[in-house]
Nucleic acid binder design. Sequence first.
DNA 1: AATCGTTGTGTAAACGTTTCCACAACGAGG
DNA 2: CCTCGTTGTGGAAACGTTTACACAACGATT
Lengths: 346, 346
Amino acid sequence: MTTPAKARKSVTIKDVARKAGTSIATVSYVFSNAERYLRPELRERVQAAAAEIGYVKNAAASSIKGKRRGILAIVVAQFGNSFFTRMCVEIVSIARQAGYVVTLCNSDEDPEQERIILERLVEQRIDGCILCPALSLEANTELLRRHRIPYVILERSFPDSSMTHNFVGHDNFQSGYLATLQLLAAGHRRIAFSGWDSPIPNVRERVDGYQAALREYGVAVDNELVLTDELSADAGRRMGAQLMASGVSAAVLGHHETAKGALLHFQDHGLRWPEDLSLVMIGTPEWAGVLLPQLTCIERPEHEMAVASAELLLSSIEAPDHPPLSQLFHCTAKEGKSVLARSQLP
Amino acid sequence: MTTPAKARKSVTIKDVARKAGTSIATVSYVFSNAERYLRPELRERVQAAAAEIGYVKNAAASSIKGKRRGILAIVVAQFGNSFFTRMCVEIVSIARQAGYVVTLCNSDEDPEQERIILERLVEQRIDGCILCPALSLEANTELLRRHRIPYVILERSFPDSSMTHNFVGHDNFQSGYLATLQLLAAGHRRIAFSGWDSPIPNVRERVDGYQAALREYGVAVDNELVLTDELSADAGRRMGAQLMASGVSAAVLGHHETAKGALLHFQDHGLRWPEDLSLVMIGTPEWAGVLLPQLTCIERPEHEMAVASAELLLSSIEAPDHPPLSQLFHCTAKEGKSVLARSQLP
DNA sequence: AATCGTTGTGTAAACGTTTCCACAACGAGG
DNA sequence: CCTCGTTGTGGAAACGTTTACACAACGATT
């Protein structure tokens, strides 16, 4: 009777030591302690033995002796959102250069999912985390703090958070302000705002910026012109219809997801931009590049934000007791063809 | 002189045991061995103690005793490609339900990057991997096989691979065929193909499908009409120009990335579809949803493919010695407004 | 009262690393 | 020839878990 081929045990440091005719300590020094001086001949002999039997060190085992884990995580609330996708790509590549593997997670705007994800990440004893939180902040960052896992809050800020958390995000007030300014400067006075009806402060801040810009131009703020709805293309279509009915000459599309629906509605119903309605959109989704006439977009400095958050995380891993840092980035207007200059009449 | 606050050691199973007045074995049973019977009172006491001092088990430590690691990985060659992004979202969510955390990696079409990534993943002793390989297959899957890490090749197949690898992908021949068929059926006869000039077989197979469809309709294959170029919007623009100059009445846009450039070129130069040129695109990028007139797209069954690859991976983790399985999915045409029916003249 | 299952609990030996520390080998100085 | 630094190497004790196994406690059988 033949014994069934049983799963071969994995190759360990011991096997390498035996093969190279040395001790396990030496092998460990070769792979995990570059400072330690070893006779070059010995070092090479060990490496050759390792290569021959296909040894790769076990990061899990090494981490329980206090070495760093080698894993970072990014937890975002909207993984499909290309703003996050693009930043993730950059963050992952920076992290890899620093020797980390990155776990990407999607909470899908669900704080409960987020909690489950973070618990699993804590189980894995990740070295650090970049978090774009769903809805609320305290509940889940508490978990990270208790386990002394350095983290950076990305893009979504909450009141008073700068004292307790590392933060990288953009100035939502400014993006709302800047968007509105494009339209005001072109002579528009009846300007609507459409956006996501969200409990997170970002949207509210954009509206505040919008209103501040209006006031600066002496335009009365009309709350009827602030439209918000849920985050879907259908909701966007509804708002598109409302915009068409509202009689405004210009609109700020405050969130790309709903903007998509509004634009589809416009196309379906023959509304042309900028002839019939001037538009400025906050954000630069993939499709903004192919849609003509090109929209004027308020662009977030994605690259800088990705670099900043990655570096902030890496440095707070190095210095865990460093006081929290906040970095607020500003947007720039990327001019398209969607704003029509209009005679300056009331 | 005050001692500096040193990093508190992490909470371990021992602390819980001490707090609950029991042994570490019992604590371990509570958290990692659901079958084991324990007095309910004891179980609860342990859980309460753990909650109180904030214990979370260390997955790394538990994995070195042979328990599964709890980490899967997806390595794709084009992370920004929304086809992959959307599948990733689904795979991650299926994996999470099975208790895994998923690491997402981007090789950026670079086999060397891919190797580095896979080596790190092996270091982490991941439980399984879904891989969309850059350029070649053998070099890097060898590493996974040697470490007995179950894997599934996604979307990119290579000759003879079905014997050695698990595979989930779509039938590129069929997608090329189906795209061309839309145009042939509408009466077109001079039909161009534009696509990515890639060493991976996918594109070649699409061209084969395109040519097979032509032959089936008795149309002579003209190699001049097969355009390929690198993967960029600029290359797409070049091909757009070539298409306009070629005098064809219809074209298959064989890859969304170059298609984007071609469409921009068309828009810039006043070429309208379907009036001036009928178009069918293989793939459904985000922007296909907003561009009017809506393109007829050849759609891959993303959802089914995501589910299939996740389940294939999970099941080959359960049964590592199961022979490799290949699943080939078929595309469907999603009709838009970009194909003009044309009188059946030669 | 001695024996025997049951049932529940804890001791201790792994797992694959890292790293402290002891010590071997060796040439130089007495 | 002995001692003493150097310098390089390896023995062995951790790290936080899991789990085989021994055993305590207890009621039921002889």
